[in-house]
Design a protein around this nucleic acid. Structure first.
Lengths: 209, 209
DNA sequence: TATATACTGTTGCAATTGCAACATTATCAA
DNA sequence: TTGATAATGTTGCAATTGCAACAGTATATA
């Protein structure tokens, strides 16, 4: 199942789910998952996928995070405290919900599977920080071109390939990079004209180095 | 001491430090702390303070993080994997170093203080994510003005005051916001002229709302 | 299949920004 | 104290970007 239950056998997983009073909830496509801001929870995407989206007073939309299957999110992990944030299911999505306070304040410290669970959670938060840092690395670039190239490089380095399949639309990519979509589109055109990249639909091929 | 040792008594702290093979290192002002990129460690600032700084191939400098006293940093927490990163002591700084792999792979799961330690680490990473999200919230604003105002608002909300004492220089603030220093300076001037803020040295007073 | 809706590509133009260069002030270290 | 170094403030100008508006294409849904 999820990384969250790494090194915990099925029996213990079930005990854990009981101790932590978990629940499984389903959401149809394009609906909001939870009124998250009010509750202090951790969620795991069991099926489907979702996006954490922030819309500020100017109407600027930003994708905070992509939640694929097995992704872990939550008030504690994803900073959903601001009421401008919502999680939208992009497909029919099934989610496992755990009360965060119960996790932290639990006195079950003598169960080894409970301690393993906390360790797993730590591994996930550590990874999340890594991702946030990547995002920051991209956002601190000053030009659209540099942001795009940084995005490409990170993707390419991670998967060891020069062919990038965008996990979302170009519209979403612009939101992720926090730039104007049409300006980004223009920059992609220049990159193509100058022979740095090649695109077909959402597949981008890096032609440099 | 640090949050890292929350709810762990002194005796157990000492045991923990022994188990984790910690060491305490001192660094003079303006020197680099560790060749961090190679080692997988967690560090705690015991005295002094430092900055995590990234300089990319363009020579653009970015402050990744401010490390005040008690701050926790590390390859796992701060994404110091990239070799463009360095930690610079801004004063004479004393640092406690722990081997991260020892923390994670330790089999001391039956010591309650060890489990508490992991929980504390989890609390810290969770907080770090919160901070990263704030930074991202700022960086996704499109104009320098909006970035400044977002920075002010977050600071102001956190401390419940309309008077901001910059924790670093304006030069550093520009790096933090990932904008040109002189352009930021110009924008601050406009904000003053329009009566939104007042500044004296590194003290900024918010005059709106 | 038809039709609405979302996504993509393009471009002119105005606004914002980065860059460079310089003067001034503050801070640090010998 | 003094000289060096870093931080700050200012401005013109060119480059980059956001915005708006529109057309064409793809995708979803009744």
């Amino acid at each position: 199942m999820s990384k969250l239950f790494n090194k915990i056998n099925e029996k213990d997983q079930k005990k854990l789910l009981r101790i932590l009073e978990t629940s499984i909830l389903s959401y149809p496509k394009n609906t909001a998952i939870l009124s998250v801001s009010t509750e202090n929870i951790i969620g795991i995407v069991l099926e489907g996928n979702a996006q954490i989206i922030r819309t500020d007073y100017n109407g600027n939309r930003t994708i905070i995070e992509e939640l694929e299957e097995e992704a872990v999110f939550g008030t504690a992990i994803s900073s959903l405290t601001s009421d401008e944030c919502e999680i939208i299911a992009k497909e029919n999505t099934k989610v496992l919900i755990i009360d965060y306070d119960l996790i932290i304040n639990s006195e079950n410290t003598n169960y080894s599977y409970y301690n393993q669970f906390i360790k797993n959670l730590l591994a996930i938060t550590t990874e999340t920080i890594e991702e946030k840092n990547e995002r920051i690395e991209i956002l601190t670039k000053k030009t659209i071109r540099d942001k795009l190239l940084e995005y490409f490089n990170i993707y390419s380095k991670k998967r060891g390939t020069k062919i990038i399949y965008l996990p979302f639309s170009f519209t979403d990519l612009a939101d992720y990079l926090a730039v104007d979509r049409s300006a980004m589109s223009r920059e992609l055109k220049y990159l193509k004209e100058e022979g740095f990249i090649d695109t077909k639909g959402r597949r981008i091929t890096l032609l440099y180095r």
